[in-house]
């Protein structure tokens, strides 16, 4: 549904994106993570046929981003980083204006707009001027604008930024519904738990190119290694650890705690417990150390810092 190969964009002497390739299947949600200035917005703008790539090519919904830009803009909904509303208009007036640009009839626009306002927990607010809306409400209107023409592809740049937790949850739920509805979505975000909970796959972009890509689990395995386990025993460890090296890779040893990695905890952990019990050590606790997406992200960002 979205296919980019070797995409690059240079603004005069500044290269914002280079050699970026990605693929998003129909109904899939790809989260694009990256630090500020990494090239996320430029990538989204190129995929949204707003900016022309300097190098490479991309197809969205079967259309070339350069040759069929108008078709892409018709079939795609975009939430920009800042909602950019016209504050003197009411919510409904605003959406009628945008709906007309997509060739929708006024009746259809009103029907959809009112439904979406209710869905985003803002019933009745569409008659009020947008200037009276809170930041979160404005962001939701931006999302409604992107969804109004029922697009097959959605490009969402920071959809929950500036939202209170309740509003953010509503938006996330809506995005989840859109994904379940087999829409193709690219989600740019700094919110790592949001990316992990919503996305099918994650791509980390840094300095204009993708430096890591995969599901959250794949990325953790690829970048952080085997699962890490921490085990606590009931007395001081005195050299018993050396005997464990045949079973696991010991990473750190404390007074009565060891942390190790193992490719298959379901097999290794019972063996290890039996071994320690045999040595007369009582196992107090055994748990897998949580490796968050944040660890992955920081690992990737730090690793490529000086590249």
């Amino acid at each position: 549904m979205i296919e980019a190969v070797g995409l690059g964009k240079t603004f005069d002497e500044f290269t914002a994106v280079y050699d970026l390739s990605l693929s998003v299947q129909a109904g899939e949600l790809l989260a694009l993570l990256g630090p500020n200035g990494a090239g996320k917005t430029t990538t989204v703008r190129m995929l949204g046929a707003i900016l022309r790539p300097t190098t490479g090519h991309a197809r969205v919904n079967g259309h070339d981003v350069v040759l069929e830009a108008d078709k892409i803009r018709h079939s795609m909904g975009m939430l920009t980083e800042q909602p950019g509303l016209y504050l003197r208009m009411s919510g409904l007036e605003y959406l009628v204006f945008y709906g007309r640009l997509y060739g929708l009839s006024d009746d259809l626009i009103k029907k959809r707009a009112i439904n979406l306002f209710e869905r985003f927990n803002m019933p009745g607010a569409y008659t009020r001027r947008l200037g009276e809306y809170s930041k979160g409400m404005r962001q939701k209107v931006g999302l409604i604008r992107a969804m109004l023409h029922d697009p097959a592809v959605l490009l969402l740049d920071e959809p929950t930024s500036a939202m209170d937790p309740h509003s953010a949850k509503l938006v996330r739920d809506a995005i989840r519904e859109l994904r379940d509805d087999k829409r193709t979505i690219i989600l740019c975000t700094h919110n790592l738990p949001e990316a992990e909970s919503l996305s099918d796959r994650i791509a980390i972009i840094k300095r204009g190119t993708i430096v890591a890509e995969g599901t959250a689990i794949e990325l953790k395995q690829q970048l952080l290694g085997q699962p890490q386990i921490e085990l606590q025993v009931d007395r001081y460890l005195n050299g018993e650890v050396e005997d464990l090296s045949d079973l696991v890779t010991v990473e750190w040893v404390g007074e009565n705690t060891i942390r190790y990695r193992t490719p298959d905890p379901t097999v290794t952990n019972p063996q290890l417990v039996r071994h320690l019990t045999g040595l007369g050590l009582g196992v107090v606790s055994l748990y897998e150390v949580t490796q968050s997406l944040e660890d992955v992200y920081l690992h990737v960002v730090e690793e490529t810092k000086d590249v």
Binding site: G48, R73, G84
Partner: peptide, 14 residues
């Protein structure tokens, strides 16, 4: 300046 131009540029308007 008010950042309301980009949403317009994302529409089918030429």
């Amino acid at each position: 300046e008010r950042k309301s131009l980009e949403p317009l540029l994302a529409t089918p308007l030429t």
